[in-house]
Design a binder for these strands. Structure first.
Length: 357
DNA sequence: ACTCTGTCTCAAGACGAC
DNA sequence: TTGAGACAGAGT
DNA sequence: GTCGTCC
């Protein structure tokens, strides 16, 4: 998944585009969280936690703590839930329906996020793409994911390693800086990513990070590079034009309609849900929530106007961060179009297929 | 001889008590 | 599963 | 910091 070698390419060829950032620096910033990657990691990494009803709580518990951790740091997370993948995507194993082990879990996650007062968005396709769209339109500061795909999708900032456990700094990748250092246009960068190997296309054997970058810098496009390469090295499924389209014009949520709103956690409902219904330890949940409340409340009292949080204090590197004062949760029902409703419902099923170029 | 790619292996989350 | 690091072996 | 536990 993702572009496997992109991270090592950047670390080797343009390390200056990565900075180490303490999580505190994201205070009051909106970060788009790629929920699918996080969920997957929780499911894969943790020794499975099963409650008395036989439910796997690994992801739910992990997401709870990690989300609270972000809130404690003053981060405004917006979760992006994965939609159906483009048909071109090579996926091993799963694909549709029941093999996705978590329809129930996704509902659980949504419920928990609502009680936490954290907004989420149902993507129409790859979560990375919608995260990137939010960032591009200044609705979010950056994308939090381990999946480097967010960069070719155009997320100007990609944040890795934002974990509760991680005492150190996160890694922030800066896309404009990266393009400048690599001396590539955004389009050329996307093509470079395809050469490195992405989910949407086969890959030319023998082209690794060094050669791919060198050739792209020298020739400027895959089309011209292909002329310099023996045909037998090009695999039959090297459909780079289609892959390029999927990166440059992916299916994303209509961000102009997205409105985001953060509320204080609903502690009683959280305890009811997480502890009484899902049987997570009530004391731990309450302790955590009390700590969060202690962090959040004094702040709101000190700064009766939300504005004051903005440019005034604490943030040496603050810039055009989007203002998130009175957004609210996605859709107004008044002018809701049936289409949006349909898109919304997609989460529950496979009703919608993506148009594939 | 050196550089690069491909393959293998391993670890993986968060908490709190100590 | 994924990603990162080590290493071996192919390519130049 | 390390380690045992989370359900």
């Amino acid at each position: 998944m993702g572009i496997q070698k992109l991270a090592s390419l950047i670390k080797k060829e343009a390390p200056e585009s990565i900075s180490a950032v303490p999580p505190r620096d994201y205070r009051d910033r909106v970060l788009a969280i790629d929920a699918s990657v996080a969920i997957y990691q929780f499911n894969a990494a943790i020794p499975t936690i099963i409650n008395r009803d036989g439910e796997d709580l690994s992801a739910l518990q992990g997401m709870f703590y990690r989300t609270v951790y972000m809130l404690e740091n003053g981060i405004k997370p917006v979760f992006v839930l994965e939609g159906p993948p483009p048909a071109l995507k090579h996926r091993k194993g799963n694909s549709d329906g029941k093999s996705t082990p978590g329809h129930g879990r996704r509902d659980d996650l949504e419920k928990m996020l609502r009680y936490l007062g954290v907004p989420y968005i149902q993507a129409t396709g790859e979560a990375e793409a919608t995260c990137a769209a939010l960032v591009k339109h200044c609705l979010a500061w950056g994308t939090v994911t381990e999946d480097m795909d967010a960069l070719p999708f155009g997320s100007t900032r990609l944040i890795r390693n934002l974990k509760a456990n991680n005492l150190g700094n996160v890694e922030e990748y800066n896309l404009p800086k990266l393009l400048k250092l690599l001396k590539l246009s955004p389009e050329q960068f996307v093509e470079l990513c395809i050469l490195l190997g992405c989910d949407y296309s086969g890959k030319i054997k023998g082209l690794g990070i060094k050669k791919a970058l060198e050739l792209m810098q020298k020739h400027g496009s895959i089309e011209r590079i292909l002329k310099t390469i023996k045909k037998d090295r090009i695999p039959a499924d090297f459909r780079y034009q289609e892959a390029k389209q999927l990166f440059l014009q992916p299916s994303v949520v209509d961000v102009s309609r997205v409105q985001l709103n953060w509320r204080a956690p609903d502690e009683e409902n959280l305890v009811q849900f997480l502890s009484h219904e899902k049987h997570l330890n009530e004391t731990k949940i309450r302790t955590k929530l009390a700590k969060l409340r202690a962090i959040q409340q004094p702040k709101e009292k000190k700064t009766p106007k939300k504005r004051s949080a903005q440019s005034s204090l604490s943030d040496p590197n603050n810039q055009k961060q989007p203002k998130m004062t009175d957004f609210f949760m996605a859709k107004k029902k008044s002018q809701k179009q049936p289409q949006r409703r349909a898109a919304r419902l997609t989460k529950s099923g496979k009703s919608m297929e993506l148009p594939v170029p």
